[in-house]
Design a binder for these strands. Sequence first.
DNA 1: GGACTGTTGGAGAGCGCTCTCACAGTGCAC
DNA 2: GTGCACTGTGAGAGCGCTCTCCAACAGTCC
Lengths: 342, 342
Amino acid sequence: MTDTMPRAAVPTLDEVALLAGVSRATVSRVVNDSPRVSPEARAAVRSAIAELRYVPNRMARSLVTRRTDTIALVLNEPNTQVFSDPFFASIVRGVSATLADTDLNLVLLTAQDEREQEKIGRYARMGHVDGVILMSVHSDDPLPDILAEAGMPLVMCGRPFDDRAVSYVDADNRGGAEVATAHLIATGRRRIATITGPLDMIAGVDRLAGHRAALAAAGLQSFPQLEAEGDFTEAGGARAMESLLGRDPELDAVFVASDPMAVGALSALRVAGRRVPEDVAVVGFDDAAVATRCDPPLTTIAQPLADMTPLLTELLLRQIEGAGEAVESRVCRTSLVRRASA
Amino acid sequence: MTDTMPRAAVPTLDEVALLAGVSRATVSRVVNDSPRVSPEARAAVRSAIAELRYVPNRMARSLVTRRTDTIALVLNEPNTQVFSDPFFASIVRGVSATLADTDLNLVLLTAQDEREQEKIGRYARMGHVDGVILMSVHSDDPLPDILAEAGMPLVMCGRPFDDRAVSYVDADNRGGAEVATAHLIATGRRRIATITGPLDMIAGVDRLAGHRAALAAAGLQSFPQLEAEGDFTEAGGARAMESLLGRDPELDAVFVASDPMAVGALSALRVAGRRVPEDVAVVGFDDAAVATRCDPPLTTIAQPLADMTPLLTELLLRQIEGAGEAVESRVCRTSLVRRASA
DNA sequence: GGACTGTTGGAGAGCGCTCTCACAGTGCAC
DNA sequence: GTGCACTGTGAGAGCGCTCTCCAACAGTCC
């Protein structure tokens, strides 16, 4: 069996044409839904395709069309923990769902170190994908540059560090954080700590800036010892909370820059014997599913993911279509979701 | 600017050849590391490639070689929660690391419903990938059939439900579960419950079978009310534990078919006021990182992931090389890791 | 009847690459 | 000198597809 069929006999356009009694060109027209085909020819081709179980060879097609109908969602993250971040899962699901109705394919690429980033850069430049959505960008990642330089259509999920001309979709992280901390202030808290995201990520930076701005607006000073850097993971949140409690046992509120970290903070507070929200009020960020399940349910800032993911793909597709189209970006509004923790 | 360069001027082999003063064939030889090139020619080509920033067009190459140098890791799972399963993250990282030294690319594909599975099937059949590693297969998934029928090299992570001739790599789930429950019995427990995985997944089925076998071997009966089905998530584990406690408040041990579920069970037990391991002993499965972090640290069954992921890729690559190669499968040994929970 | 328009289908030229084959050149044994 | 093995190189034929012509034909109008 292995000898008699060294490779599966994959039918080609020509064979379909032969069977249908038309030319290659006509088969191609049918496959690509061109209107310029008579119903009879179309029917003949359709049945020949079905009979031969013909599937177009994408490589051959791509070679001439310069399109692969594939876009990549690149997760740029050394830490495998990200996989467990519900924000990431939501984006993947959202983008995937948006593309389900098209005949575009979505591939996920993960880069755990610089070497893998370069590999992905090569992968993209070799023409495997039409465009890239880039997530979880750290300040020193070379991938945005590699891709931009190659002229690859690119949309970043999260605004870039510098003011480069690149499309992005982002939540209003700064504004959301400001609202979160303002809410804490409005409920009478005065010693307000924060657990930040990684400060080499723009979401981490922006949320910290928002927090500080709210403090300043209320005439409160921001103390370095009330700021602890987390890594967007639950374990990191717990560690950061412990550290904060060590530095200032009197703190009465904490704005945590992501829900998974907030869940970690909640357990650290429990371990330390603090009641939430009586002793320490907690506000998270994301409005992840876990925010409703934890104890107490988390007051948090909702990111409009339902708006963001379609936008992400829309911006990318427009760039792919329009070749030299202008760079376009969107910032989506966040909102405070009040639950029990603050 | 957009008008003057309607598309980035991507250099081709011919241009490199022209600049280097050699033929296309020689450039191709250099690019593909053929030894049959003089050092001078090689050097000339290398510098021309560098100067033009030439990257081979993968589509053109694939068209003739019939290889894409890309393999797909397909995650077949309606539930986005899987992303947070450390087992999945470990496999992704492992496979990715194994491939990092090769010039093979890894793409992740996720299928959330049957429609997306078919899309992936088409994607593969169109020749985007050389082979597929399939994870998280449920009993009624059509994808294995679609791929097998198309003659796509395929390795499943986890053995298939029926005895079909397909390569797979799996942990000894049945044996591991047997050891887990036997350990519970050996420490004097008698009312031993289990939280199973989804029973439309082979890992769920096998671990339950092992648990029952251990019970039977010790002359203990297995009661349906001591078996609750989970979904491999923490929340599912907590729910299942609550349900078990409701059904039999006297239970003194529980074998939980995954660590995330065990963590959920631990919190449910805490809420119910049970001490672990004094009142209820708990054994998990996976030896995920979380098993060391939870309270108390989890006694669990370690899966030899370090063996499994290289095996997964190795088996697939052998299949890709050897076209009609014989199907080959491996079951990797598990081991009991004793910590504080049992 | 002739010129024109519109529709359908085919011929053929590539897309950028690999790879076989032929060929020139070199070294060495006879 | 001839024969032979071997090495480095180039010419050229595709891989399977798309897409631009262009031909053939039918219908319409003057």
